[in-house]
Design a protein around this nucleic acid. Sequence first.
DNA 1: TGAAACATTAGAATAATTCTAGGTTTGTTG
DNA 2: CAACAAACCTAGAATTATTCTAATGTTTCA
Lengths: 143, 143
Amino acid sequence: MTKSTPKETVPSDNDLALHLRKVGLRPTRQRMALAEILFRQGDRHITAETLYTDAVAQGVNVSLATVYNALHTFTAKGLLREISIDSTRSYFDTNTSDHHHFYFEKSGRLQDIEVGHVKLAQIPEAPEGKSVSRVDVIVRING
Amino acid sequence: MTKSTPKETVPSDNDLALHLRKVGLRPTRQRMALAEILFRQGDRHITAETLYTDAVAQGVNVSLATVYNALHTFTAKGLLREISIDSTRSYFDTNTSDHHHFYFEKSGRLQDIEVGHVKLAQIPEAPEGKSVSRVDVIVRING
DNA sequence: TGAAACATTAGAATAATTCTAGGTTTGTTG
DNA sequence: CAACAAACCTAGAATTATTCTAATGTTTCA
């Protein structure tokens, strides 16, 4: 699994391990393998099932339960962001910076929208003592 | 089930039946009962399970499958709008006009945001031949 | 190295939703 | 009204996505 020809956008195993350690997660074999799939190839929108399938296809020996565990802990630690499209479709986005999404209804694909392309004149009160944790904008495209 | 004291904001059974007929749905006993629960009391954000429970509590004899069928056909006909919060939480909104939502993460409650309070500078191309079917904005409030 | 904390796993369990197939209701037409 | 087809409803089985259980394995660090 270890790659010896890193590109500048491709985190090395060491970087990945540090990435995990930095947020308080042990860089176990499975997490490293999943992190590699998730973060190696730039921004991705991936489902649990897809990640599991990808991992297995690459010969990574990991259970579906571990995939769910990893996705959730990564999300809790801010390495991923979860995007819910409808009751049966939930994606994990490796891009955790502030941005929004196109959703192509036919193909089920997501595409990032830069945050600058959306302006919120966000007047309504976030009631006393509460704050906005996040704003999700999904632009649905039919076709 | 028939109410004899309508208020001005409360559609009469006749109105409900017309409402259903207008979109090509037969005003069956079950649909009328569900429509009454859904549309009688102003804007609501309701789940399938809640609607089913409400109906049963009111003595309406309806199956869960019918509740799902009704919610989906109502949505397909534009009488409802589905709002997906996360993989395990999906609401049906009786307000189908253009608007957005606060989501209170602690209580799981939704609250409408008037469309005027959100401005979209929506530059990115909706690729050739495709169009925006809808824009969902969810402002998540923690606490 | 050894113990404790943390992770992983297979498989069972759960939850939400959809499907199936047969019975019922509704709208239509004569 | 009678009769028929289409639309509808339903219980219960099936499916799908996800979580749980509890036993085993791994990592960390003193």
